[in-house]
Design a protein around this nucleic acid. Structure first.
Lengths: 237, 237
DNA sequence: AGGTTAAAACTGGATAACCAATTTATAAAT
DNA sequence: ATTTATAAATTGGTTATCCAGTTTTAACCT
């Protein structure tokens, strides 16, 4: 039996290499906003990788707003100069994977804001949807069943009512990751569920009455008993 | 000359359609966490689309943590039940594109937090990088040149020093979009630049002295003169 | 020379063929 | 009948080919 060194997500490493080399190229050729990059074929040949790899790397840089592609024309550097380009590529390459702690920290930040905005901006339709999410949650809890999913949807309904699509998007991105971690650590059991109903209702009522300050306050309390608890468990393990 | 109805990002629409149909399928087949989806080939055939489209749709659902793929095995529903799955797919489909206003709103929220965390957690190395970003900014401004990029990098250095990779990632995602919008609207000219140096220095000093409260205060002031201004311009136009 | 046009080359994206690993089905052995 | 061994079929991922616009080049005409 031969001991082999595992590639360990080799594709991610070569993607980072390509991104780095694209950055070098932009520097070397002094490419400015609007200038065209070499074609995907040329880059794949020059870097000694497959064209798919190049495409994936470009796609990622597009996501961060550093490049943009025009279908049958080419890929161009976005409206960002070489200095910012260098710094951002550096940051992107060194960006570490999100861990549980930072996810929770970010979620709390976002939710304390979205609940406030939701209280200020919610339409009647928004309110109805929050209400139905709350009802579904309460119903499940009162039956003694697990209501993690309904809890999630209640919070997402608030994010939606905030009228801020960016925050809403971010909430959609991080919340599921938190939920799955929750279940993995078996941290938040159903013992707090009944308390959860009261807290959810308090939040809902504050939003209904458009009392933004109270809404934020109630959300804060909600997190105090729930997440602070999980937080500590996680830290001590 | 024939007037033709433009497809108008047809590929995005069919991706949404596919995502919706995948959701329906999960409902119809009562697929639970860990269950396997039909193969990409089967889905492409069943939906009458190309396999690439299916792959893209799956990739997006993976990004939001609803599915996960195992290389030569299949695609599986993540550790999220059908209720949450339905709600999230609904949200993802109805998610509207981020506009300038929500981007700024989110950036302010994030920066007021990251600057506070940076003051609390920054290492000496972090501080050095913030300092060098500040120096580069000041140098450019004093030469009377445009310093948008250096400004950007200063703020990103703070985000990095916050020690929260999730917030750092979000900052990387939204900041370039804001910058390009800025230049598009020609809103923040160089007249405020000298004031900008002072404000940046105040923020830096607060972080250096690990005075988190002051750091947040100074960042708030920084936004008051800069972004509040842009905000109003944007709204009245 | 300058401007016009057509054709060749190039581009990102779509499609199809292929691959290695996995899973399932089948056969063989006890 | 159960277990094991083996082969066939299936899987997501990779590579190669093709396509429809775009861009450049070159030829042509005035």
């Amino acid at each position: 039996m031969k001991l082999e060194i595992l590639p360990k997500s080799e594709s991610l490493d070569i993607q980072k290499t390509i991104i780095s080399k694209i950055g070098d190229l932009i520097n070397y050729k002094n490419l400015e906003p609007g200038d065209k990059l070499p074609s995907e074929r040329t880059l794949s040949e020059k870097f000694g990788v497959t064209r798919s790899n190049v495409r994936d790397a470009i796609q990622k840089l597009e996501l961060y707003g550093l490049l943009y592609s025009i279908p049958q024309s080419g890929t161009f550097v976005a409206n960002i100069g070489v200095t910012a380009m260098n710094g951002m590529i550096e940051d992107i390459l060194r960006l570490e994977d999100p861990d549980f702690k930072t996810l929770v920290e970010t979620r709390i930040l976002l939710e304390l804001k979205t609940v406030r905005l939701a209280a200020l901006r919610r339409s009647d339709e928004d309110l109805e949807k929050i209400k139905s999410a709350l009802d579904a949650y309460s119903k499940k809890v009162l039956k003694g069943e697990d209501a993690v999913q309904e809890d999630l949807l209640f919070h997402l309904a608030i994010a939606k009512a905030s009228g801020n699509s960016t925050m809403n998007n971010f909430m959609l991105l991080i919340t599921p990751k938190i939920i799955t971690n929750f279940e993995k650590y078996h941290v938040c059991d159903k013992s707090l569920a009944n308390q959860g109903i009261e807290e959810h209702m308090a939040i809902y009522n504050a939003i209904k009455n458009q009392n933004s300050k109270l809404a934020k306050q109630k959300m804060k309390e909600h997190f105090n008993v729930l997440y602070q608890y999980c937080y500590n468990i996680k830290m001590s393990s």
